[in-house]
Nucleic acid binder design. Structure first.
Length: 558
RNA sequence: UGGCUCAUGGUGUAACUGGCAACACGUCUGGUUUUGGUCCAGAAGAGUCUAGGUUCGAUCCCUAGUGAGCCAACCA
C-alpha cells in the first residue's frame, strides 16, 4: 500500500454527496468538476484549498476537471491574472481538462435570455439602480414590483435588442428575471441578468455592450460544460435557489443538471484572504506585489520557499466542512518544515556576524573539513568547507555571562563548532560603545569532528555554526514575520484592516556571511541554513538574495 | 421584523449514520543527537453550546432557546 494513496482515511461531506449520487444512479463517467476563478487577482491559499478539493475529486474519481475563468466583468479583469492563475495551478501540480471561459458562452447566454423573455420570465427594467434597489426592499419585509415588470414580450425583446446594440448608456436599463418580489431570499426578487458595460473585454473586445451577471452566467456555464458537482464557498449558499431556478428554465430533457454545494472557505490566522484587500495592499505599495513573500498568495508562498507539496499536504490536513474556521498558521509551518527537512541542502550562514579568533591556531594555516549536505538522506553526499584562525559566528550565539540554560558560547565554557573543533571562550574585545568586536577563544586540536578521537567524542553542551573569515561570500537575507498583528484582520469591522499591519514583517540582513558553497545554489532547490531555518533564493536573477521560508522548530528555554 | 447555514479539547477535522469521543497541529515531560532541528517514548487537555423530548442507550434524531456566519451590488 502506497502512503500517498491512503492519506484521506475520512471522507468529507462533499465526497459523501458524490458517492451518494453515484449509488443513486449517477454514472461515474458523468462526473465532472471545475475550478472557476475570476481573473481579477492572484490565487491565494484559500483558492489552493478549492483547487485541491476539485482536482482531488478529479483524481479519486478519475473524472475531468475544467479550469473556467468567470470573466463576466471586464471592468475588473485582465489577461495578466489569467496567466498568473494558470501558472499557479500548474505549479501546484494539477492539470485541467478544458480551459474554459464564461465569455465563450455569451452567445448562448444571450439566446437563453431571449427565451426567458419570450416565456414571460424576464423583462427590461428602465429604472435607475437606486430605484431598483429601493424597491427590492429589505430581507425582513416584502419588496415592490417594478412599474416595467409587465411590459409586453415584444417591447422587452425590442428593448433587449437595443441594449445589446448599444443604444443605451450604462445604467439606463437592465434585464431582470421575473421571479418573486416577496421572496424571503433577496436573490429571488427579480435578479439582474444583464447590465450595460462600456468597457472592452479582454477576450471578446468590443463585441458586447451587455454582460451577464454572476448568477446568470455561473450555473449556465456549469450546465454547458455538464459539470456534475459545482462546489463553492458558503457565501453562495443563498444563491442556490436562484441557481436551480435558472437551470429549471433552460434545462433540456436528458441532460445532466449540475448540483451546487457549499463548503467553508479557508481562513489563516494573522493574514487576510479577501482578494479585494490583497489587491489594496498591492496597489498601495504596502507590499512589493502579489508575489511578495509575506502575501498568502500561492505566488507569494512559492517565492518565500514553500514547496507545492507542502501546500497540498496543508490543504489535506485542514479538511472540509461547513464551519467557520481560522486555521493556525503553525499548521502551514509544520507542513512546510516536514517537507523541507527531507529535501533541503544544508549550508552554514552567519546572519549577524561577529569575529571569533582562535588564539592557539596557527596564523596562516587553513584546512578543509567535511560536512554532510543532508543528514536525513545520505545520497545528498558531503561537501568541503574551509577552516582557519579567524571565523565569524552569530552574534547571538555568544554571551559573556549566561545561565545554565544557555547552550552556546560563553567565557570559560566549551562549545563545539559544527563540523570542526571544540573551543573554549577566553576573552572579548569591545569597541568604544561597549559592543563586542572580537571574541577570543582556544581550541582543542585533538577534537576534530569525525576524527573518532576520544577528545572529539567528548560531550559539550552546544554546537554552533560558523563561517571562515578567509573564505566566505557576502549575501543578503530577508527574514519575514507575520504580515498582521491581529489574528483575524478580516473580521475587524471597526478598524481598517491596514491598521493592524506588522511594521516589522520584513527585516533584511545585508551583511550575512555564507560559506563559499553558497555559490553553487540553484534556484529550484531548497536550502537549510543550519540552525537558522529554511531559505530559498529570491529570484533567478540574483544569486545573492535569500528569503527565509520558515524557522526551524525552536525549543530553547532561556 | 424574514430566510438560509453552523455549533465536538487552544486550533482544525473524525466518530462505521444511535453503542460511554479519535486523529493532526499546538502545549508539556523524558530519551537520542556534532543543528536547542530530525527521530523515539510519554503526558495533560473536550464529556460534544443550553434546556427539554424520543430511546435500554444520543455528539448523532425531534422541539425550543442561545451564540456565530451569510443574504438587501447593475461584484464574484
Amino acid at each position: 500500500m502506497n502512503n500517498s494513496d491512503s492519506i484521506n482515511l475520512n471522507e468529507n461531506f462533499l465526497e459523501q454527496i458524490i458517492k451518494n449520487d453515484l449509488s443513486n444512479g449517477l454514472d461515474n463517467t458523468d462526473l465532472r468538476f471545475r475550478f472557476p476563478p475570476e481573473p481579477n487577482g492572484f490565487l491565494h491559499i484559500g483558492h489552493a484549498k478549492s483547487i485541491c478539493l476539485n482536482f482531488g475529486f478529479g483524481k479519486t474519481f478519475s473524472a475531468p476537471v475544467n479550469l473556467r475563468f468567470d470573466d463576466t466583468n471586464p471592468e475588473k479583469e485582465s489577461t495578466e491574472f489569467i496567466d498568473a492563475i494558470k501558472k499557479d495551478i500548474t505549479w501546484l501540480g494539477f492539470q485541467w481538462d478544458s480551459e474554459c471561459y464564461a465569455s465563450d458562452y455569451f452567445d448562448q447566454l444571450y439566446d437563453w435570455a431571449v427565451m426567458l423573455i419570450k416565456k414571460g420570465k424576464a423583462y427590461v427594467d428602465s429604472q435607475s439602480q437606486e430605484e431598483i434597489s429601493e424597491q427590492r426592499g429589505v430581507p425582513t419585509s416584502s419588496g415592490k414590483k417594478s412599474p416595467h415588470r409587465d411590459r409586453e414580450v415584444i417591447e422587452n425583446l425590442d428593448l433587449f435588442e437595443k441594449m445589446k446594440k448599444g443604444h443605451f448608456k450604462p445604467g439606463d436599463c437592465v434585464l431582470r428575471a421575473k421571479i418573486d418580489m416577496s421572496s424571503p431570499n433577496m436573490h429571488m426578487r427579480d435578479p439582474v441578468l444583464y447590465r450595460i458595460i462600456n468597457t472592452s473585454h479582454h477576450r471578446t473586445n468590443d463585441k458586447w455592450k451587455i454582460y451577464p451577471t454572476y448568477d446568470w452566467a455561473h450555473g449556465q456555464s456549469d450546465y454547458i460544460e455538464q459539470i456534475s458537482h459545482s462546489f463553492c464557498t458558503l457565501e453562495f449558499e443563498v444563491h442556490r435557489e436562484l441557481y436551480d431556478w435558472f437551470l429549471q428554465n433552460i434545462y433540456d430533457e436528458g441532460k445532466l443538471l449540475p448540483k451546487q454545494r457549499e463548503f467553508a472557505r479557508l481562513n489563516l490566522s494573522y493574514t487576510i484572504m479577501s482578494k479585494r484587500k490583497l489587491s489594496e495592499l498591492v496597489e498601495s505599495g504596502l507590499v512589493s506585489g502579489w508575489d511578495d513573500p509575506r502575501m498568502p498568495t500561492i505566488s507569494g508562498l512559492r517565492r518565500r520557499g514553500v514547496p507545492a507539496s507542502a501546500i497540498i499536504a496543508f490543504c489535506e490536513k485542514v479538511g472540509v466542512s461547513k464551519r467557520e474556521n481560522i486555521i493556525d498558521f503553525a499548521l502551514l509551518d509544520f507542513c512546510t518544515r516536514e517537507i523541507l527537512n527531507k529535501i533541503s541542502y544544508r549550508l552554514m550562514v552567519v546572519l549577524d556576524p561577529v569575529e571569533l579568533i582562535i588564539e592557539n591556531y596557527e596564523n596562516d594555516k587553513s584546512e578543509n573539513l567535511v560536512a554532510e549536505n543532508n543528514p536525513e538522506d545520505e545520497s545528498y553526499g558531503n561537501r568541503e568547507i574551509t577552516f582557519s584562525k579567524k571565523l565569524f559566528i552569530e552574534r547571538e550565539d555568544f554571551k559573556e555571562e549566561a545561565n545554565r540554560k544557555f547552550f552556546r558560547l560563553t567565557l570559560g565554557k566549551e562549545v563545539r563548532l559544527k563540523n570542526a573543533y571544540i573551543i573554549k571562550g577566553e576573552r572579548v574585545e569591545k569597541d568604544a560603545e561597549g559592543n563586542i568586536s572580537k571574541i577570543y577563544c582556544s581550541y582543542d586540536p585533538k577534537s576534530k569532528s569525525g576524527s573518532g578521537s576520544p577528545e572529539s567524542l567528548r560531550k559539550v553542551k552546544g554546537t554552533i555554526h560558523w563561517v571562515d573569515k578567509n573564505n566566505y561570500e557576502n549575501i543578503s537575507v530577508n527574514i519575514y514575520d507575520k504580515l498582521f498583528n491581529s489574528e483575524s484582520p478580516d473580521d475587524d469591522k471597526e478598524n481598517d484592516f491596514k491598521d493592524s499591519l506588522n511594521e516589522n514583517s520584513l527585516k533584511t540582513f545585508n551583511n550575512a556571511c555564507a560559506e563559499k558553497n553558497i555559490n553553487n545554489v540553484e534556484f529550484d532547490k531548497y536550502y537549510q541554513f543550519q540552525r537558522k531555518g529554511y531559505f530559498k533564493l529570491d529570484s533567478k536573477k540574483s544569486d545573492k538574495i535569500f528569503n527565509r521560508t520558515v524557522t526551524l522548530r525552536d525549543n530553547k528555554k532561556f
